Simulated assay, not measured.
Amino acid sequence: MSQNLQGGDRLRPVDLARRHGLSTQAVRNYEEAGILPAAGRSPHGYRAYTPLHASALRAFLALLPGYGHPAATSVLQAVNRGATGDALRIVDESHAQLLEDRRTLRAVELALRDLDPVRRERGDTFVGPLSRRLGIRPATLRKWERAGVVQPRRDPRTGYRVYGEADVRDAQLAHQLRRGGYRLEQIAPVIAQVRSAGGVAPLESMLRDWNARLSARSRAMLSGAAALDAYLECRGE
């Protein structure tokens, strides 16, 4: 960038800030962080921005809702240091994570749906019967317990693990998700959500909200990618 700018190309920090509802200090902070290219200087030595900086700022702010602050920052920093390939890789990784989130949601929806026709036993059950019912080893249930996926109580007289109806439901859901390829550390938060909701039925609204958030994030990513593409065009890339 030329160090001496023509008046028609020059934007003051306040000009850039006002257009986006920011403070001038925020604009300077973005420049110092590498989110904006280094500013040129006016003949009197004042910091001066150009339409290129305005495009960079638009791209960053557009990326934030869909990609998040760390990824948006890394993308702009990479572009500004000439590593466009690195920036596009970060974009691709964010889209891959969104796809994985959609797959997780679908797996949860299917797992919850598949719980409905499963026969419910009356009363409590123990490790052996439950493991046979699910077609897994008793050691697997104990591993799930250590991971916080199931939380059976202990019989005060014998010390045996006792699985109530809610515990059986949690084990069934965990089994469905494990069959879908999900790890225990991914499953445990879902089971915790089921417990806090008081069962499966109240989760329907949560799943709708989850789906809506993913759709909103996907749309935000489209807008962010378009603004990033415009910035790359502005840079001549």
Rank of each mutant, 00 (worst) to 15 (best):
P202I: 00
L232N: 02
P189T: 05
W210E: 15
R137M: 04
A48D: 08
M221I: 10
Q77W: 01
A227M: 10
R213T: 14
V118D: 15
A26R: 14
A230C: 07
P70R: 00
T140W: 02
G68W: 04
R235F: 02
A226W: 10
G68I: 13
A96I: 06
D114A: 15
R169N: 09
R208F: 12
L177G: 09
P138Y: 01
D9C: 09
R120V: 04
D124H: 08
G21E: 14
F60E: 07
G82C: 10
G123E: 09
P51T: 11
T158L: 02
V162M: 05
I191Y: 02
G82T: 05
Y49V: 13
Q193K: 06
D155T: 02
Q193R: 11
R195Y: 02
H44F: 12
L99V: 03
A225G: 09
R102L: 04
S131D: 02
V149C: 11
A26Q: 13
G68Y: 06
R133K: 07
Y67P: 00
N80V: 00
M221D: 08
G45T: 12
Y30W: 11
P70G: 08
N4S: 06
R195A: 01
Y160T: 11
L177W: 08
L64Q: 13
T73R: 08
G40I: 00
R81C: 01
R219D: 01
R122K: 15
N29A: 15
R10W: 14
R102Q: 05
Y182S: 06
D124R: 08
L11S: 03
A220G: 13
V108G: 06
Y46G: 04
R133A: 03
G21N: 14
L134P: 06
A87H: 04
G199E: 04
H95Y: 14
R178N: 04
E233V: 01
S196H: 13
S218T: 15
R137F: 04
A96F: 02
R10I: 11
G45A: 11
R122M: 15
Y231T: 04
G123L: 14
V168L: 02
N80R: 10
V14N: 05
W210T: 10
V150L: 11
A56K: 10
L36T: 08
A54K: 10
K143R: 14
